[in-house]
């Protein structure tokens, strides 16, 4: 479903340039759960951003569901972000002025559709039915991340990308979040997760290890 072919990313030009990704290639099948691991600066977050259309690659190609993403213009990328790819961030990235429910509704707002029921259903699934009107500042880290996961699912995407979703949590809360991802994957969702957490890596079908922008290992669990 997702093909990453010889992707490189170089920041800057000339002598001061930094190679963040160097000739990275791998495939992800539909319903697969992939963990990207590596030290800080290994390029895993950059790779995730490029897959999600949040950043541009320098060389290579990315094909999702038969469509090349790397050469799309901004408006086509907007459509991809609305319909096919969703993101879960380490810092949750919820809008502080909106309630939990409104944050989940945000992607629908930009699509111009109103589906309160779907958003509420997802919040309930995340165990936050009673916290729907709370602002992010009134929620714990784990709760905020669940809201962010609900937001990532509201448009029913083909692919969900998660950038260290448990990075800011204690082990127990992190484990609960990982259980949620397991559950989503069991429901058939395709997930790529950047993580430092060995527990997360064990849960994934496939672990891709990056070092200095290169794939150095691919472990199939």
């Amino acid at each position: 479903m997702l093909e990453i072919k010889e992707v490189s990313k170089v920041y800057g030009q000339g002598e001061g340039s930094v190679v963040a990704l160097d000739n990275v290639s791998f495939d992800v099948d539909k319903g697969e759960y992939v963990a990207l691991m590596g030290h800080s600066g290994s390029g895993k977050s950059t790779l995730l951003n490029i897959i999600g259309g949040l950043d541009r690659l320098s060389v290579g190609s990315i094909v999702l569901d038969g469509q090349r993403l790397d050469n799309l213009d901004e408006s086509e990328l907007v459509r991809i972000r609305r319909d096919k790819i969703s993101y879960v961030f380490q810092q949750y990235h919820l809008l502080p002025s909106l309630s939990a429910l409104e944050n989940v509704l945000l992607p629908l707002t930009f699509r111009g559709v109103d589906r309160n029921g779907r958003a509420m259903e997802l919040l309930e699934k995340m165990g936050l039915g009673k916290r729907a009107t709370h602002r992010p500042s009134q929620l714990s880290g784990g709760e905020q991340q669940r809201v962010a996961i609900a937001r990532a699912l509201v448009n029913d995407p083909l692919l969900t990308l998660a950038d260290e979703p448990t990075g800011n949590m204690d082990q127990k809360t992190g484990s609960e979040i990982l259980d949620l991802f397991d559950q989503l994957n069991a429901e058939g969702r395709t997930i790529i997760m950047v993580t430092h957490n060995p527990d997360a890596a064990k849960r994934a079908h496939k672990v891709i290890v990056l070092r200095d922008g290169r794939v150095v290992d691919c472990i199939v669990n």
Partner: peptide, 16 residues
């Protein structure tokens, strides 16, 4: 800038 990034990441267009 963070809020703008969030809005774009969840599907806001430039026009929006």
């Amino acid at each position: 800038i963070r809020d703008i990034g969030i809005m774009k990441a969840v599907g806001a267009s430039r026009r929006q």
